[in-house]
Simulated assay, not measured.
Amino acid sequence: MDPFEYCQQKAAASGSSFYYSFLFLPAERRRAIMALYAFCREVDDVVDETHDLQVAQSKLDWWRGETAAIYGGTPTHPVCLALAEVRRQFNIPLEQLLEIIDGMQMDLQQTRYLDFKNLQLYCYRVASVVGLLAAEIFGYKDRQTLKYAHDLGLAFQLTNIIRDVGEDARRGRIYLPIEDLQRFNVPAKDIIEARYSDNFRALMEFQIERAERYYDQAMAQLPAVDRKSQRPGLVMAAIYRTLLREIRADGSKVLTYRTALTPVRKLWIATRTGLAG
């Protein structure tokens, strides 16, 4: 199979909101972002689908070597073959791809975060770095756009964390900072046992407000000159903010329910936002 066909199938199969934003890109940029997104899916799947920590560690180590081969060797995986081609046209530094793997590594070593500062490092590696690379692929004229991309990536990851509280807890992970749990008097046991309370709803409202602030901060930092080129990010933001507001409207029932938008609704939001571009 052609490496780019593999990447497209990997992206489409995920059902992610990100896939819909790629539809508005020229072919060469679409191929590049598909390759980057497929890379993220592959290394994320190592952590989510491999239950033996030693096996997961071995797989991540393999991915580090395979990623390095993109820049000075002979990669063998279709995703890395695709990235080896697109990196010649777009600025995709090795260090940033390895930082994404570092973020996945954190999932193998850490299941709780003391405070938001520590959580930010995780979010930076698994999401903001992806946002920065995506901004390079989409194209920009003003470097201020990189601040937008950084904060938008953080907002996306905070949205994911909010959506997946219950699912993550069942996997033994709680990304909500310990200092936040203590502030709202929500014991970790309540989250693990899916126990709702007024305190928990207040905690989630706090998390939602934090995410909304990062969306606002990101949008305020996007220069007008780059608004058209960064349209895929705006599409993603529209879909993700709609999801975040659905979670709030549902009463933050994230311990027992995973709020999701239908593919048709995602496509409608993407089309509306893309045309408004």
Rank of each mutant, 00 (worst) to 15 (best):
F206K: 12
Q207D: 08
Q207Y: 05
Q207H: 15
I208F: 14
I208R: 15
I208G: 09
I208W: 13
I208S: 11
E209G: 12
R210W: 13
A211G: 09
A211N: 09
A211P: 01
A211F: 00
A211T: 14
A211Y: 05
E212H: 02
E212I: 12
R213Q: 14
R213K: 11
Y214Q: 15
Y214D: 06
Y214T: 10
Y214M: 12
Y214A: 10
Y214L: 11
Y214C: 03
Y215I: 02
Y215K: 01
D216M: 08
D216G: 11
Q217P: 06
Q217F: 15
Q217L: 14
A218F: 01
M219Y: 05
M219N: 01
M219Q: 13
M219H: 15
A220Q: 04
A220Y: 05
A220D: 11
A220T: 07
A220M: 13
Q221S: 14
Q221F: 12
Q221M: 13
Q221E: 14
Q221N: 09
L222I: 10
L222T: 04
L222Q: 10
P223A: 08
A224D: 07
A224H: 05
V225L: 05
V225C: 09
D226I: 01
R227S: 10
R227M: 02
R227P: 01
K228G: 00
K228P: 04
S229D: 10
S229W: 06
S229F: 03
S229K: 10
Q230P: 03
Q230M: 08
Q230F: 03
Q230K: 00
Q230Y: 04
R231N: 14
R231P: 04
R231L: 12
R231S: 14
P232F: 08
P232N: 11
P232M: 07
P232Y: 09
P232C: 09
G233P: 01
G233H: 12
L234A: 12
L234H: 14
L234N: 11
V235W: 00
M236G: 00
A237N: 08
A237K: 01
A237W: 02
